[in-house]
Nucleic acid binder design. Structure first.
Lengths: 249, 249
DNA sequence: CTTGTAATTGTCAGCTTGATAATTACGAAA
DNA sequence: TTTCGTAATTATCAAGCTGACAATTACAAG
């Protein structure tokens, strides 16, 4: 290849202004299970538009970050969790780019699904710069509109995040990411019940899930009443055939 | 809410320059099946970088377009297909935003999966502005690197597009989007074999798929040898349990 | 030692699967 | 028009899986 020709080609590529430019943000759908209920982290907006309404946490993607980098950084900033140590599951959900989704300017948002491992107690969430407040909210209450709907198109993003998680839990052990590294079958079943919003038969759940788990040999100290439960670790590998999600009544 | 206060809040939101800006493109993974082989549309780059290498078709997202709008427009521009009439399946795949994925500047790409309905003959593809050439290439040959790898991170995008399609065909009838509106079970089986790159037992395939299809009552005129086949239409609804994909030898 | 509760294992009829064979329906050659 | 080859479709069957539910085991607390 000719050097000067290559240089000429290179220089005539994209002139500034040839292309439309957008602001890129990373929004987070952060799930955790507490009290047998699936919860999502939301911030109350401190400025217009949608001032006072609940929204997903998020922020701009920096010039030398990927969207996934930004998602990790935002998560650390808003929860104060040490992500280098905690096993936190983050995966990209989808990108939302309707031209008028933010009335101020062109903002394209890459939504991410985040699963926080908790032992029943939710970590504090601190809103970002323009957030007045932040906290945990029950997903199914938010989605059924018992409370007011979310800012921007965040209700849709939350719904698609829930669908992604619920669907993936049919054929993977990703639900275990909402639990500590070692957990009992009852804890895992509780996660399924929280995400699917439906009860599961304990016996059949154990039978289907056990081959996907690695027995640590350890047992919990029995709670008030009941036998001690075995502690498991999740393994990789797809569940086939998948665990059937109870059909809507 | 106080009008002047609201206005003040509004005006002090995002000043230009407060946020990093990026160029947004929509890239297409366009699949079609021909001769029992899964094919992908690729263009040969006419300019640097990666001049002369194969790449996915794509282009910039316009100021008043969503990424999905742009995907539709690009597809129409590069195939000349009348998308208003043809049933073409388009869905978002994922967004690629590594800071240096394009050596020239910050380009974030929203990849889309496109399924073209064909009757065995592939439509012409005409590259975009900076494409020297365009055509159809066998997916599995491209991915196994028998040919040189694709420009940018497009090999990865292609792989993830294939995985998305292959996975979704386990539990939906989306594969029928690669066929005309009415098709035979053998045609549909051929699509599965092309995408999964594995043979399927005809009898069991029929048994499993039939409940997901609507019989048109029509039959094909028998080809040279063999009985005429019934023509079906796809229906919605998930296949449960899913069709098992043959495990890698 | 008894009781209550949770964990875990067992049972069973009915359904699904993979493998493979049998049957049916044509077009084309003899 | 009979025979032959091939593809479509249906059938068979043992093995595995499922949902529903019962039985057993293991603790803690009274």
């Amino acid at each position: 290849m000719n050097g000067s020709e290559a240089e000429k080609d290179y220089l005539q590529s994209y002139q500034p202004g040839d292309y439309p430019s957008v602001a890129l943000t990373a929004d987070l759908v952060v799930f955790a299970v507490s009290g047998g209920v699936l919860q999502v982290a939301l911030v109350r907006r401190g400025s217009h538009p949608f001032k006072g309404q609940l929204a997903l946490p998020g922020g701009f993607v920096g010039p030398m970050e990927s969207a996934d980098d930004a998602a990790h950084r935002e998560l650390a900033e808003e929860t104060g969790l040490d992500l280098g140590h905690l096993p936190v599951h983050i995966e990209q959900l989808a990108t939302y780019s309707a031209p008028l989704r933010d009335p101020r300017m062109r903002v394209v948002s890459v939504a991410h699904l985040v699963l926080l491992a908790t032992d029943g107690t939710l970590p504090d969430v601190t809103g970002g710069s323009d957030a007045a407040d932040a906290g945990w909210y029950p997903v199914y209450e938010i989605l059924t509109g018992k409370r007011t709907s979310l800012a921007f198109d965040h209700s849709l993003i939350l719904l698609e995040g829930l669908n992604r998680l619920a669907g993936k839990m049919e054929y993977t052990t990703v639900g275990s990411q909402l639990l500590p590294g070692e957990f009992t079958l009852t804890q895992l079943r509780t996660v399924y019940e929280a995400v699917w919003n439906a009860p599961m038969a304990p016996g059949n759940f154990t039978r289907k899930m056990t081959p996907q788990l690695e027995d640590t040999g350890k047992k919990t100290r029995a709670a008030a009443g009941g036998a001690p439960a075995a502690l498991f670790r999740a393994t990789e590998g797809h569940i086939h055939p998948p665990l059937a999600r109870p059909r809507g009544q």
